[in-house]
């Protein structure tokens, strides 16, 4: 029996664990992996640290949470959360964990393109993680699909390895930080990045590995263009991992984010949520906001447990 069960081991879950452990609550974090922040090649906007690899930052948070006494179980997928009398039960494939309060910090996952050839070529040219796979594309031609922060970050990183990077975006403007857009424009000037604006991907074609990406102009019918490319990096945004929350009976907004109040409480007493999976922080999806929400959620869990059990 734990006082606080934290589901999800990204920035939000680990920050919640740090706070929860410092409230002297017995705390366990159940998580699949290192979370999305670990994919950031460099993080330059976490105050106090001028620049750090995303993975390094997450590993530091893990060590910090553990050294304060929180238990951390990685490689564990929670398959269900349910009420068990006045407690909460989290089930994984092999274990069950009981807690007085739950913090759901399951983040989000990459959106798929949903086009022909995408699934077939995963691992053979199609990738959802630029920092993992960039070195395999040294001297090759690659494409990045998307126009937000993650897409631009990926394109900038890939330009260090690839001979050429195409950036395919359905709009003609980017929804990314201006500093990233400036860097991209410089790479364009140097001829290392070529923009394909106003295009959407239609099909991925190849025999053994990816050879072509078929594109279509957004506003013209039927006109297709074949782009010769060996790698396709998909960065068209994220979808919240809120299936567990939905099955538990938490209220979600129309996009699937967990509805939270200012104290990170949800519509169920004793269940809190934090990070990219929530409607909190004006939906700014960043490490600093994930951490802040984790801190608030743990504080609310502490207040809830003290009120209810002491």
């Amino acid at each position: 029996m734990y006082e606080v069960l934290i589901i999800g081991s990204g920035a939000a879950g680990l920050s919640a664990a740090i706070y929860s452990a410092r409230y002297n609550l017995s705390t366990i974090v159940l998580g699949k992996d290192f979370g999305l922040a670990s994919e950031a090649p460099i993080v330059e906007n976490y105050p106090g640290i001028r620049e750090i690899q995303g993975l390094k930052l997450i590993q530091e948070m893990q060590e910090q949470a553990k050294s304060l006494g929180a238990e951390l179980i990685l490689g564990e997928e929670v398959t269900r959360i349910k009420r068990e009398k006045k407690y909460w039960l989290a089930e994984t494939h092999s274990e069950k964990y009981l807690g007085k309060a739950v913090i759901i910090a399951t983040g989000s996952r990459k959106r798929k393109l949903g086009i022909k050839g995408e699934e077939e070529f995963v691992g053979r040219g199609v990738s959802y993680c630029a920092i993992c796979d960039a070195p395999f594309y040294r001297g090759k031609v690659v494409s990045v699909v998307g126009g937000g922060n993650s897409a631009l970050t990926s394109a900038i990183l890939l330009s260090e390895f690839a001979e050429k990077v195409y950036l395919i975006h359905r709009r003609t403007e980017f929804r990314a930080e201006p500093i990233l857009v400036d860097r991209l424009m410089n790479l364009k000037k140097e001829g290392r990045v070529e923009m394909k604006l106003g295009y959407i991907p239609r099909e991925i074609v190849g025999t053994d590995v990816v050879e072509y990406l078929h594109l279509k102009k957004v506003d013209e019918e039927g006109v297709e263009e074949k782009l010769k490319t060996e790698g396709i990096f998909v960065e068209i945004g994220e979808v919240p991992n809120s299936e567990l929350a939905r099955n538990l009976g938490l209220k979600l907004d129309e996009e699937g984010y967990i509805l939270v109040k200012e104290d990170m409480s949800t519509n169920l007493e004793g269940v809190f949520a934090a990070g990219d999976v929530t409607t909190g922080s004006n939906k700014l999806k960043q490490i600093i906001t994930a951490c802040a929400e984790g801190a608030i959620a743990a504080t609310s869990a502490y207040r809830y447990i003290t009120r209810k059990y002491q």
Partner: peptide, 17 residues
């Protein structure tokens, strides 16, 4: 695997177990 690949770091303990 590689050191810079965090999904690799997440998979490793499961394979080892």
């Amino acid at each position: 695997w590689a050191e810079w690949c965090m999904p690799c770091l997440a998979l490793a303990p499961v394979l080892e177990k």
